[in-house]
Amino acid sequence: MAYLECRNLRRNYDAFNLELNLDMQKGELLSIIGPSGSGKSTLLSLISGIESVDSGSIILDGVDITDMAIQKRSIGMVFQDFSLFPSMNVAQNIQYGMKTRDQGAKDKRTAELLSLVGLSGYESRKVFELSGGEAQRIALARAVAAEPQMLLLDEPLSALDAPLRKKLRTVIRHIHDNTGITMLYVTHDREEAFAISDRILVMRGGHMEAIGTPEDLYNNPPTLFAATFTGEGSVLEQYSKTLFFRPESIILDNVESYDASQYLKLCGCEVQSVEYAGNGYGVKLDYKGTIITAFTAKRPAQKAVDLMVKWDDIRQFD
């Protein structure tokens, strides 16, 4: 049985309806990605109890929590804006939700958690003295300190700059692996989702578009939307089908002999732009008015090139 079950979850708004079924296993880290307004944060609000559902049920570890008050659900949450309590210092923030009354145990646990998020010795710091990255780590430690059964993270890194985001996503995975806590993680950054998740849920217009492991979603996206949303690629209408392939699947070198039945060959592509990316070249090509994105090890030698893609690497959609 799943640890978290969202059954026929429904929430209607004037301009948007959320309808969803979702299962999560204990200890899993599931990320939700999707365009703005696809219902990612709404789903978290419903699970946490900040908003109430119109119909359907939410079961956590066998207990129906659908109509339970927020504070009874044992679901922690980390917000984008940190939401640290300004009238308390770091230690007081972390200890606020702790279940034990023993101050010694509280202090010990605080030190452990601070070490876990890489901020040992920060106990007496005031929260407004912290940088964005530090504040979010404290928010993480605080959420974990309350020993929730599950942790929801609502775009926790989107207020931070790119290098810090990269660093902190590792911290989040580290916390997950150390505590074994079940995490539901909303992000608009697919790279972030790929980096830390066990599974990824792609949402669109309040519905589940696709769900799977990062590798699955990248290599075998079930829909064209999931394909384009989970990474770069080119969409080509051919043989009354929609073909989709990733940039790295494209071969631009002239291959002397090959099995034609195994490859799609597009002749007479015109190179539009070449961008050097350190580990290769991002190439934009025009094939009869369709823009094709390729990634190659070598810079194309000519303006007009032929390209090949292995049929095995092409996804076909009706």
Binding site: I50, I70, G76, M77, S83, G97, R142, P148
Partner: peptide, 8 residues
């Protein structure tokens, strides 16, 4: 809301 998610 944050405090409530900590059971308060």
């Amino acid at each position: 809301q944050a405090a409530k998610t900590m059971g308060k």
